[in-house]
Measured scan of single mutants.
Amino acid sequence: MASQGTKRSYEQMETDGERQNATEIRASVGKMIGGIGRFYIQMCTELKLSDYEGRLIQNSLTIERMVLSAFDERRNKYLEEHPSAGKDPKKTGGPIYRRVNGKWMRELILYDKEEIRRIWRQANNGDDATAGLTHMMIWHSNLNDATYQRTRALVRTGMDPRMCSLMQGSTLPRRSGAAGAAVKGVGTMVMELVRMIKRGINDRNFWRGENGRKTRIAYERMCNILKGKFQTAAQKAMMDQVRESRNPGNAEFEDLTFLARSALILRGSVAHKSCLPACVYGPAVASGYDFEREGYSLVGIDPFRLLQNSQVYSLIRPNENPAHKSQLVWMACHSAAFEDLRVLSFIKGTKVLPRGKLSTRGVQIASNENMETMESSTLELRSRYWAIRTRSGGNTNQQRASAGQISIQPTFSVQRNLPFDRTTIMAAFNGNTEGRTSDMRTEIIRMMESARPEDVSFQGRGVFELSDEKAASPIVPSFDMSNEGSYFFGDNAEEYDN
């Protein structure tokens, strides 16, 4: 783990906690998980779902989305002020799938948001429990990260689609708070800032007046979040320049895209947490497990152990491969979309394939898809080993990566060399080191050039047997250095459309 220093740990961010010791953190995270579980059980009762239907990941996603929508204050306010045809701002819903006479049927349900809020609060001892809501947002974000390569979004903001390893959390809503900021990748933060800068260039009043003052505060806050992700002084200094700019424009845009590229080699610290679907927490609570009393951590053995003992089902389209669908969801559960496939294969105990080789589309089923041909199958979400999630980018030494994705962002704290394609990355730096950030740029390029592919990161860190909950005997895996390590390699994943 990167030293926490003055930073709060993510469990504290996750639970809005002030400084807590490890036991208190485990208890408050457990409380959050228990609340999600209780809410899910109650919703299944309301909807009269069978046990099997309640364990269907598509039903879980609909129920999670309903509660997130019920608590989305800004959108609710907007919907009330701008009524649109056929949208009731006070209601929320989605597809629920039921097994009827041996076939899967889709039923569109509609609930009062007020009623959903009441059920959620009741499951969370009367609190709004925003930490639990954020947790579900991060699960949705991790699922998107594993399912889609955001080529269009990258290109629109002047970045290269091969930089997708920097895009963790790119679909997280803005209201996801400190826990959300911690899991956002460098590219995601750059993209958010670039969008602001572009608006400022096109709209003279963007930075002016009372609204402009708020915009400015948001801009500086985002700059500080991004600065905190960088691990070298030169990158941090460049972020200070971007933040202090009187009138952010093209120079800042250039600096930010430069920094994003540099992060492929001088990786930023991005938190990883295993956020599971509500249909995993519900049955665990129903079986009598007391998360608050037992304590829970999002970055240790607990999620692995929970998945070892969970039964989750998914709808499967006619030509999809259930094992591939399982891999997709497994990666999402562990926030591992940008991790090295060699490491993932070792931990999972079966070969993890790149996205383009998977015969599976996303987990969600569109409303126009034919239910007649839908089957369902068990998702295999178990693992051979477990490993500690990392909050750091690993040290800054790398190795060759593949054509589709030119770097990785480690999820697990496991000893290995970190793949990246130096030639491709360095070719993108057209040696432009003039301007006010020239000395920093020169320094950053120097550090990137001296990074050695064969150097090892996370020295001495290994994986653990599932029986080793105290992480007492690390097993340090050895990897084939020459092997392909990137998930979005030469990829044809669908595009994420909101």
Rank of each mutant, 00 (worst) to 15 (best):
T424A: 14
N76R: 01
D421F: 08
T373K: 05
A284F: 02
T151G: 03
G102F: 15
G37A: 14
L266F: 10
M222I: 13
A153P: 04
G485E: 13
T442C: 06
R317P: 01
F338S: 05
D128P: 09
P453H: 10
N124I: 09
M137P: 01
E294W: 00
M66W: 04
I301V: 11
F464R: 00
A428H: 13
L315K: 00
G54S: 15
Y97N: 08
V352E: 10
N432L: 08
V280H: 01
E53F: 07
V312I: 04
L259E: 03
M163Q: 12
G393A: 14
N142W: 03
K273L: 01
Q12P: 09
W330Y: 15
A332C: 02
G485I: 07
K357P: 00
L68T: 09
M426G: 02
D72C: 06
E46S: 01
D240Q: 03
R400F: 00
I197E: 05
D128H: 14
N397I: 13
P277C: 14
F479P: 02
P477N: 04
S376Y: 09
G54A: 14
R317C: 03
R384D: 05
M66D: 08
G93C: 07
D203K: 01
Q235V: 02
L264I: 13
K198N: 13
L172A: 13
A427L: 13
S141R: 02
E24N: 07
E46W: 05
E454Y: 09
R99Y: 09
L298W: 09
N101Q: 14
K470S: 05
R208L: 04
Y10S: 09
R152E: 01
A234C: 10
G462D: 03
M238S: 02
V270T: 15
M447T: 08
M43N: 02
T62K: 13
R8K: 01
M167S: 09
K357W: 07
D290V: 08
G17N: 08
T6V: 00
G34K: 12
I316H: 02
L47I: 15
I225G: 14
L193K: 04
L110N: 09
G5A: 08
Y40S: 04
D128Q: 10
A85I: 01
Q20T: 09
M191A: 02
R384Q: 03
L341W: 04
E465C: 03
K77P: 00
L79Y: 02
F458S: 08
T188R: 06
D455A: 12
M189L: 14
T396R: 14
I408F: 00
S383R: 10
N417W: 00
G169M: 04
I408H: 00
G126H: 11
N76Y: 10
N483V: 02
F206I: 13
K103D: 03
E114V: 13
Y313V: 12
L306Y: 04
R446M: 11
K48S: 14
L256P: 12
N205C: 10
G228C: 14
E494C: 02
C275K: 00
A471Y: 03
F420A: 08
T134Q: 08
T215A: 15
P453G: 15
E18C: 12
M1Q: 13
Q364H: 11
Q168A: 14
S165R: 01
D51H: 05
S450Q: 15
R199A: 04
R98V: 05
F489M: 06
R382H: 09
I109P: 00
A451K: 14
D455V: 11
H135F: 03
Y148K: 03
E375V: 11
L466S: 01
I197Q: 06
R106G: 11
R384N: 03
N321R: 13
N309P: 09
V352F: 01
Q20N: 04
S486P: 13
R400V: 05
I25P: 00
L353V: 02
S482W: 06
V363S: 12
K214Y: 06
R99V: 05
G94M: 08
M1Y: 13
T215Y: 07
N59L: 01
L328C: 14
P303F: 08
V190Q: 01
L49K: 01
G177S: 11
Q409E: 11
R382A: 06
I197N: 12
Y111Q: 09
P277K: 05
E254C: 05
P410G: 05
D455N: 10
K184V: 11
A493T: 11
C275F: 08
G209S: 08
M374R: 08
K348Y: 14
T215N: 04
V456C: 02
L307M: 08
A123Q: 03
F206W: 08
A234Q: 03
S28C: 14
S141T: 09
R117E: 00
Q308L: 09
Q409I: 15
M105I: 15
R150H: 10
L68Y: 03
Y97V: 00
C223R: 13
E14V: 07
S3M: 00
M440N: 02
L49A: 03
S310N: 11
M13R: 09
L143V: 14
M13Y: 02
K7C: 00
A178F: 01
L358V: 09
P161M: 06
R446L: 13
S9G: 10
R436E: 06
G295D: 06
V352H: 00
Y97C: 15
Q327H: 13
F489D: 05
G490T: 05
F488S: 12
G462H: 05
A332T: 10
N205F: 05
D255F: 11
C223H: 09
L418T: 14
H334L: 10
Q311R: 15
R156F: 05
F304Q: 09
R118P: 05
Q409A: 12
S367Q: 12
C44M: 11
E115H: 06
E80Q: 06
E375R: 03
Q235P: 07
S50A: 14
S457N: 07
P477S: 07
N417G: 13
M159W: 04
A22S: 14
Q405W: 01
A284S: 11
F39E: 01
S359A: 07
R416K: 11
T411A: 12
S9H: 15
S359L: 03
R121C: 15
G132F: 05
D127I: 09
A260G: 14
V476T: 12
N430S: 13
D112R: 03
L259P: 07
R8H: 00
Q168F: 00
G200C: 08
M137C: 08
M440I: 06
D302I: 00
R446I: 10
T157C: 15
Q405S: 03
F346A: 15
D497M: 13
F346V: 03
L143N: 03
N205K: 15
V343L: 15
A182R: 00
H334E: 00
Q364E: 12
N202Q: 15
D203Y: 09
T147E: 03
D145W: 05
L143W: 13
A237Q: 09
E369I: 09
R261T: 05
A2C: 01
D491Y: 12
R213S: 05
E73H: 11
T15A: 04
I41M: 11
N202D: 10
I116V: 10
G180N: 07
P453V: 14
T437Y: 00
T130E: 07
K31I: 13
T171E: 08
C164S: 12
A271M: 01
L226K: 08
S478M: 05
D127L: 14
S245F: 04
P283V: 10
N142S: 13
F346G: 05
M440P: 00
H82G: 06
M43G: 01
Q415K: 12
E454T: 09
V280C: 15
L344G: 01
K103P: 06
E210A: 09
E53Q: 11
E80L: 13
A401L: 12
K90M: 02
E192R: 01
E11V: 06
N397L: 13
F412I: 11
T151D: 03
D16K: 00
F420R: 00
L49N: 00
A471F: 03
Y78W: 08
R305F: 09
Y10Q: 05
R246E: 00
D145E: 11
Q58Y: 02
T373Q: 01
Y385N: 13
F291M: 15
A181K: 05
N309V: 13
L307Y: 02
N125T: 12
I406N: 08
Y219C: 10
E494T: 07
P322E: 08
S176H: 04
P248S: 08
L379F: 05
M371K: 13
D203F: 05
E469S: 05
L307H: 08
K325M: 11
M66C: 14
E469N: 13
V280S: 08
I225V: 10
N247K: 06
A451C: 03
N247R: 10
R422K: 09
E18V: 14
T134R: 00
T433H: 07
